[in-house]
Design a protein around this nucleic acid. Structure first.
Lengths: 158, 158
DNA sequence: GTCCATGCAAATGATTTGCAGTATC
DNA sequence: GATACTGCAAATCATTTGCATGGAC
């Protein structure tokens, strides 16, 4: 699983970019946990255990690079940190446009995949003339463990 | 249209908060343009034309207040600025859970209303046990004026 | 050897906070 | 008159940038 180290080398070389230990390690950290959404600082900390000399600026610069190469996606949970996760190309699996379920209690972020949005995109184009290229969908609520499957509130209206 | 000045007074008093010119003006600016999504700085500039003594810190503090009162909503377009718009309560109209169409060319932000998401929310709850309380949906693409209704690219795959 | 990439430290820029003065109730 | 609110300036904090060194090709 995860992007092959060789594939990544190829991509970098094809773009005239250099293959460095730092870049390999950062992608590896992100690829090794496709369902954890890490902040720049968290990536920095994880890489540092294997490579203590790395600087935070390098992490930020590499993140930019990986975003431009579409190997990772950014997620903003509006908590003051931008998070990153490995993307479609990065995993090789079809994680095409999955949505995020953010638990308001424990903060856990799950992923959910559904194609209902495609229908909505078509509807938007027909109705407004807006041509959708990409979307970002976040659902806030309560996960299974935090009471998602228990009906604890009687708010049927609103 | 927009929240009645009196209603706002009531809400503030009920919470033991004071009615100030600054608070009235800031809500008014947001209520007067329900489809424009303003940054804190933009709100600051607009209020300043009527009330030049206002400070930027007051704008930020009032925005926090209005968010807590659920009179406004925040929108993050990931361009480095957080934007705000008047919410359901603020307009009195049903703008329940509208989505944002963000033009990648001209930067314009349109609103779009649809209930297809409700269906998706149900599906999520049934499938994962996650109970959805709120959602935020952003569509990136090209608006009518910028080529949304013109097929200018032949990219059918990806 | 040539450049690109890195690491450090300083800069940036939106948002926040402390504090003394001011306005509301 | 008490207390909450404001305005200013300083502080904060994630992210970016300048620059000299180091590493990839």
């Amino acid at each position: 699983m995860a992007v092959d180290r060789e594939q990544f080398r190829e991509i970098l070389k094809k773009k005239g970019l250099k293959v460095t230990t730092q870049r390999l390690l950062i992608l590896e950290v992100l690829a090794s946990c496709p369902d954890v959404h890490l902040t720049a600082e968290e990536i920095y900390d994880r890489v540092k255990t294997d490579y203590p000399e790395i600087g935070l600026a390098t992490v930020y610069r590499t993140i930019q690079l990986l975003l431009e190469l579409h190997l990772i996606d950014r997620i903003n949970l509006d908590d003051g940190f931008v998070r990153y996760e490995i993307g479609n190309l990065g995993t090789g699996m079809s994680r095409h446009h999955h949505h995020h379920l953010i638990c308001l209690k424990c903060g856990k972020v799950e992923s959910f995949q559904d194609d209902l949005l495609e229908k909505l995109e078509q509807r938007i184009t027909v109705t407004t003339g807006f041509k959708v290229a990409d979307h970002e969908v976040k659902f806030y609520g309560y996960c299974k463990e935090c009471g998602g499957n228990v009906i604890e509130k009687n708010e049927k209206s609103e």
